[in-house]
């Protein structure tokens, strides 16, 4: 059985998920996630060493299509909903800390 989820775990996971949580939410989420994971302990406790996992309900494998180019979105359509675009590309703020 794994240890109960802590406040530090919640802060770490928020960073991974690119979410900024205020102190109140960190507190609330820690309690709520702990309760949900506690409920999941029935699953955690099962001995399933010999049971294969099911990742997908329908046994389809290697779904391929002919390697032929077909119509797709134009550059203009693809950029139409972009918060910022420039020269036919998505524009984002600087990737590293300081602007060049």
């Amino acid at each position: 059985m794994s240890a109960r989820i802590t406040r530090d775990d919640v802060i770490h996971v928020a960073t991974l998920a690119r979410l900024a949580l205020d102190d109140e939410r960190i507190e609330t989420f820690t309690g709520q996630l702990a309760a949900i994971l506690e409920h999941a302990q029935d699953v955690e406790a099962l001995d399933l060493a010999d049971v294969p996992p099911t990742s997908h309900p329908y046994p389809l494998v290697n779904v391929l299509r002919p390697d032929v180019a077909t119509a797709t979105l134009s550059n203009e359509q693809a950029l139409a909903a972009a918060p910022q675009a420039e020269s036919g590309r998505f524009r984002v703020p600087t990737i590293l800390g300081e602007a060049p």
């Binding site: 794994s2 989820i5 775990d9 919640v10 996971v13 928020a14 991974l16 998920a17 979410l19 989420f29 996630l33 949900i36 994971l37 999941a40 699953v43 955690e44 099962l46 399933l48 049971v51 294969p52 996992p53 099911t54 990742s55």
Partner: peptide, 25 residues
């Protein structure tokens, strides 16, 4: 998102996500 990120994160994947996929079987 938090719950899912936690269930997939290092050290917990087998206990949570992997185990749940077996229960699915």
């Amino acid at each position: 998102i938090m719950l899912g990120t936690y269930a997939l994160s290092a050290g917990y994947y087998d206990a949570f996500y992997g185990q749940a996929q077996k229960v699915r079987t």
